[in-house]
Nucleic acid binder design. Structure first.
Lengths: 200, 200
DNA sequence: GTCTATAAGATGATAGAC
DNA sequence: GTCTATCATCTTATAGAC
């Protein structure tokens, strides 16, 4: 929606970075203040409460995650594969940072301890991700872009779960290469035999 | 190793329950004291520091997870399938509790904020799980119990990641049925066409 | 083993000056 | 927008009585 001011944006960026490493509960205003060289009171000017900050960061994260998704064209099979690859973009970025994992996954892990606003947004994220993937896979299969057995929704759940788990294990093991075989396997799982692995 | 006293055991059980819902950082001695009807000082008698408690709980969790794994018999294909199903036992239990997810996954999500002892144990857990699954799948395939393409290690990573991610998403969405299709899909992924889904 | 009492520090947050 | 000062509360942890 409305663009953040410079300090607010830096605060959001920093909070995201730390939360992806430690979790929501382990990031304090004091941590952010130290990083930016300001006082904690100044942060409250931009984000009155911690949950305000969390909601904003989650909103930006969601926008970044779904913006990469180009519009698909029913008569062009290739467009579905492009959309799928776009969806993987942020994942591939995260895969290279060994201390970080998906913000939404982290929040999911801490779920019961989160403020109500954030709980809601995490649920919405997973719902929308599943819907997006289900449509992409279902319509893409009809268009001949993908090939797999069973329901599109079940494949969407498989892919979302595998990515989420892999990125988490990658972080805990500090192994940047962990996701390589996973991404290839997922690719193989939905691509017709003719399509080769599109690694970046 | 050494069995815990009654209070220590209850403390460990309660900590596990709460940590699987909220994360490690969001469970305090005050929470435990309230639950057991004792004072926080009493908890320090059983577990001097919080990381002592965490390490103990993680050890018990690991033992419960791996104990279900029966010894496999190379000349009996069925024994590999039994071992695989035993491994899924704890997962199926967790799948039915909608507020809970895997302790190790939760700790993985909070990784950078954890005490060093616990970080180490989390890493060891994931390492051993991968090794166990790799051997089970590899030798099981040789024995004719499983059928899949590619390296056993890659399939082990797929399965571990998918389970971890699915159980996390299940918790965030509060959807007990979420894992049903996932477990069936994983089954289908490694079982020869003749073997039907062994649902509990 | 459990208690009271207490400490020392962190935490999220506010009021009001500049 | 950022600061100082201050707050109430929570957090892990210890000393010592019962």
């Amino acid at each position: 929606m409305k663009p953040l001011g410079k300090t607010a944006q830096t605060l959001a960026d920093t909070f995201l970075e730390l939360a992806m490493e430690r979790g929501y509960n382990a990031v304090s205003y004091a941590d952010l203040a130290k990083r930016l060289g300001i006082r904690t009171a100044s942060i409250h000017y931009h984000f009155p409460t911690k949950s305000d900050l969390g909601v904003t960061v989650l909103r930006l994260y969601k926008e970044a995650t779904f913006k990469a998704v180009s519009a698909t064209t029913p008569d062009n099979p290739q467009s579905y594969r492009v959309a799928f690859e776009n969806m993987l973009g942020p994942v591939r970025s995260l895969a290279r940072i060994d201390e970080a994992s998906c913000l939404v996954g982290v929040l999911g892990a801490e779920f019961a301890s989160l403020p109500e606003d954030i709980k809601k947004d995490v649920r919405v994220f997973f719902n929308e991700q599943e819907q997006f993937l289900t449509h992409l896979l279902g319509e893409g299969r009809t268009a001949g872009a993908f090939a797999f057995e069973g329901e599109a929704k079940d494949m969407a759940k498989m892919i979302a779960s595998t990515l989420q788990g892999a990125i988490l294990i990658k972080k805990a093991r500090g192994d940047c290469g962990y996701m390589d075989s996973i991404l290839e396997d997922l690719h193989r799982m939905i691509m017709p035999p003719s399509v080769s692995t599109g690694s970046t």
